[in-house]
Amino acid sequence: MDEGIQREALVATLAAIADRIESEKDHLTDLDSAIGDADHGANLHRGFQAALDGADPDDDPAAFVKAAGMALLSKVGGASGPLYGGSLAVASSEFEEGITTESSVAFAEAYLEKVKDRGGASVGDKTMVDALTPAVHTYKRAIEVDDLDPLAALSKAVDATERGVRFTTPIRASKGRASYLGWRSVGHPDPGATSTLYLLEEIHDVAAE
């Protein structure tokens, strides 16, 4: 992909995500009401709006993603702020040589790593990690083992993410506010896993255009 097109694609992706979060804001907050503190929608909306407002289309990809991460870090707050924002900011360095198929895999891995590191959650704790892990594993395998192109790989990753979100519903939370509920957390999907799915869906849809 040529650099100009990459930049446009990044701006379009960020805009699509911000839009999507806006329209899902109340839904995310409802999910967080059931097993958390009813702010996940507002948190992410505030953050992505700020990221979009502050985005500089002339930035190179690494700088662009890093700026978005820093904006989330300083606007979202809560648990999802350092997780979404900090991880984006750190993983952005994988794009320093530009966005390629390989660097996109490295980025995905670095992002997942940082989320797990900062939050200390593993798969099965009923957090965004449950959505991210199948997404990243599936993406990496589709590219490296199955030799699919990035768009087809992304499409598989979205399917995998969805299964991750559905997986969070029947299990008991061991991390995040939902863990305070003990067994009462069973039966509700995790808000952060759900918002992770929305992000991936938007990344996929913009890439498909």
Binding site: A38, D39, A42, N43, S74, K75, G77, G78, G81, P82
Partner: peptide, 12 residues
Amino acid sequence: AGEVFTSPTADQ
């Protein structure tokens, strides 16, 4: 002071 029920951000 963070937003309502939301931890303040790291820069603040």
